[in-house]
Design a protein around this nucleic acid. Structure first.
Length: 311
DNA sequence: AATTACGTCAACCGCTACTAT
DNA sequence: GATAGTAGCGGTTGACGTAAT
């Protein structure tokens, strides 16, 4: 035989707490301290279950709870901890003084998760995803480099393989209507899976043409940036997008390491230390986060981009 | 001004690990 | 050792406020 039930559930009150109930609970805990939630409601004169009292105290009434919007530093801490701990909200909350697991969980689901998705970062794996390629803008530029099928084939493992498969078909057809058709199909299909060794292949098989090593993927990115024309709305774009079938953490870490090898900054710091991109003259922390990460995963090729040199 | 859609967040639900009987 | 309660956690819900139409 176990213990007797902690309370009569039929007589319990549910729903939002009233100020009177809050006052009773706060007064009781100030007098006796938290703990023994089982007997607390009866002693405090509350028609609530101990579980409900504990939740109300830990998530709302506790005096050390910090109220208000999460700061940039708190947000970056949550993202970094989540990349390590996953949905261990209590463990994350333990490292954020004044914030509750419930609050962090809510903030993650309503703000951070959406922002990461928008940036093309998988909120589960924290890995970038490459599954949307705006082919029309690349092809419509009529770049002589991209009209070369061999160049496209050589790019195949660097970019989205499925996307390039479509591109090859389009180039051979040179039919605008078909292009729009394919683009529509591609953008509505399930995103392709990037194999765990995807970036390994890039490093060991594709980049040797330029004597690039696994430690200099960052150079590769910078070489792209050198040809970026960010104000040209007609330039081609390669967009990374999230997907729940994402890369494993090893690949992600390798990519992070490669991207960071030249400037000694970690990938995490790329997220956490955005470079302001002030267009309108007013730049918020949120704008900075978003614009920087968008730039990180968006390559725009100018007309003068030498494709042969790149490949 | 009325209605609808969307976002937020406090509170509840259900599960697990641990503990008391 | 078996049984049942407790504490804590993560997922989900629904009421409420706000924005969009």
């Amino acid at each position: 035989m176990g213990r007797s039930p902690c309370c009569d559930k039929n007589a319990l009150k549910k729903g939002p707490w009233t100020p009177e109930e809050d006052a009773k609970l706060t007064h009781h805990i100030q007098m006796h301290g938290p703990g023994n939630w089982r007997s607390l409601p009866k002693i405090a004169g509350l028609e609530r279950c101990g579980k409900s009292c504990r939740l109300r105290w830990t998530n709302y009434l506790r005096p050390d709870i910090k109220r208000g919007r999460f700061s940039f530093e708190e947000e970056e801490t949550i993202i970094q901890l989540h990349s390590v701990l996953g949905n261990k909200w209590s463990a994350i909350a333990a490292r954020l003084p004044g914030r509750t697991d419930n609050e962090i969980k809510n903030y993650w689901n309503t703000h951070i998760r959406k922002r990461l998705l928008k940036m093309g970062i998988d909120p589960v794996t924290h890995a970038p995803r490459l599954d949307l390629l705006d082919l029309s803008s690349i092809l419509m530029n009529n770049s002589p480099h991209l009209n070369n099928l061999s160049n496209l084939i050589r790019l195949q493992t660097l970019l989205n393989p499925d996307a390039l498969r479509v591109a090859l078909t389009l180039l051979s057809s040179q039919n605008e209507n078909q292009l729009l058709n394919y683009q529509h199909q591609f953008q509505n299909q399930a995103p392709p899976v990037i194999q765990p060794n995807h970036f390994d292949n890039i490093i060991t098989q594709q980049i040797p043409l330029n004597n690039l090593t696994s430690s200099s993927l960052h150079n590769h990115y910078q070489s792209l940036q050198g040809h970026v024309c960010p104000t040209n709305p007609t330039a081609g774009q390669v967009l990374f997008h999230d997907n729940y079938t994402g890369m494993n953490s090893t690949t992600s870490d390798q990519t992070k390491q490669s991207l960071s090898s030249e400037n000694n900054s970690s990938f995490d710091s790329v997220i956490s230390t955005p470079q302001p991109c002030n267009i309108s003259g007013i730049t918020t922390a949120e704008d900075e986060r978003e614009s920087f990460c968008n730039d990180l995963f968006k390559f725009e090729f100018s007309e003068s981009f030498d494709f042969d040199d790149f490949v």
